[in-house]
Design a protein around this nucleic acid. Structure first.
Lengths: 109, 109
DNA sequence: CTCCGCTATTCAGTGTTACTATCTACCGGT
DNA sequence: ACCGGTAGATAGTAACACTGAATAGCGGAG
């Protein structure tokens, strides 16, 4: 992946995953697959699993182990109230950045 | 500063500075002051200087030492051709991210 | 004259994050 | 019995922004 994209994803990827989980619960493998569909072609699986563990430890998501017909049991993540709150903050932060960059891109300084 | 902002700035701050330097040459202290005006209230000076050294070492900017009436000599940075190219890439990467996030924010899935 | 504040830069150490690469584990089909 | 696909975990690495402090020159207050 481009180095630029890699760096830019830091701090953003978490928001993307949380935003996805707001719409519906999902497990890691599923999230990875969805990201690939969205054009984030080569986000490593390991990255997503690590991220999910982080947001779980911060108490932003609830986890439920569900047996799978294929492979090991799935860990199904769903956004909880605290996660929702954090996500709102995320959109606020992002929209601030968005405005600054738009301004820079168009007008010049 | 908010932790979210800190993480989100990774990879983005560099683009912001390069975009600023496209409009006009500047030295570190000046850039820091401008960022504060733009609402990036508490970006540490040390952060900017480190960033400037990085982009200098990557050959994205040209540097000229200019004596100052006040304090030590200024290192004036200006965007060169390679930097311009890199900046174009940056806008591309960012606009991709922007689209994905807009979509997520509005529509849902 | 000396100290303080402002301008201006540098640097060492830290925490967070995404990446790479590898490993475990379970299932169905050849 | 083995392999491909599903599912998750983990150790080590690189990049980046932050903190905090140090250095350095100048002007003005005391």
């Amino acid at each position: 992946m481009g180095k630029q994209m890699t760096e830019m994803l830091k701090g953003v990827l978490e928001g993307i995953v949380l935003a996805f989980l707001r719409n519906r619960s999902a497990y890691g493998y599923e999230i990875t697959a969805w990201l690939r569909e969205q054009g984030f072609a080569d986000i490593a699986e390991g990255t997503i699993y690590a991220l999910l563990i982080r947001i779980e430890q911060r108490g932003l998501v609830d986890v439920e182990k569900v047996a799978s017909e294929k492979g090991p049991p799935r860990k199904v993540y769903s956004l909880n109230a605290q996660g929702q709150e954090y996500l709102d903050e995320f959109w606020g932060t992002w929209s601030f950045l968005n405005q600054r960059l738009d301004q820079l891109h168009e007008g010049g300084n």
